[in-house]
């Protein structure tokens, strides 16, 4: 792990993972698993994301997950970046925002960011279509 990611992760361990939790009757709910979960040998990661939308504004975001540190860091950054934004603004967040947030370039972080942003954008699009 890049030292900036390690430092941020260790800070989260001390101060707590701010966005962990659950929102009952969330406006947007998405859940994703790793490739396998768990198959005969492996146990892989999962993520449940809860987003509360009021009007066009994301007022709250929470998650539950089991993952490795870098994934957890990425989810925390995603939540921080998204909270308080409109749906359209959230849908325009780029992978680079994650690097800027931590002030480091890291290939793994980019991969996780890309994965999470694709998930988020898909769900925002679906929510907007359903509520239009």
């Amino acid at each position: 792990m890049h030292e900036a990611i390690t430092a941020y992760y260790q800070k989260l361990l001390k101060t707590g993972f701010e966005h962990i939790g659950k929102i009952d009757n969330a406006s947007i709910y998405l859940e994703t698993f790793g490739e396998v979960s768990p198959v005969c040998g492996n146990t892989d990661d999962f993520l449940c994301l809860y987003i509360q939308v009021e009007g066009n504004l994301i007022t709250d975001i929470k998650y539950q997950c089991i993952s490795d540190p870098i994934t957890n860091v990425s989810i925390e950054i995603l939540c921080t970046l998204v909270k308080g934004k409109t749906l359209d603004e959230a849908a325009f967040i780029k992978e680079e925002a994650f690097s800027q947030f931590l002030g480091c370039e890291d290939e793994m972080l980019q991969e996780k960011a890309k994965f999470l942003l694709e998930l988020l954008k898909g769900e925002i699009f679906r929510y907007k279509t359903q509520t239009a």
């Binding site: 993952s67 540190p69 994934t71």
Partner: peptide
């Protein structure tokens, strides 16, 4: 927390 991924 995040006990996953140590093997990797």
């Amino acid at each position: 927390p995040n006990a996953l991924g140590i093997a990797v």
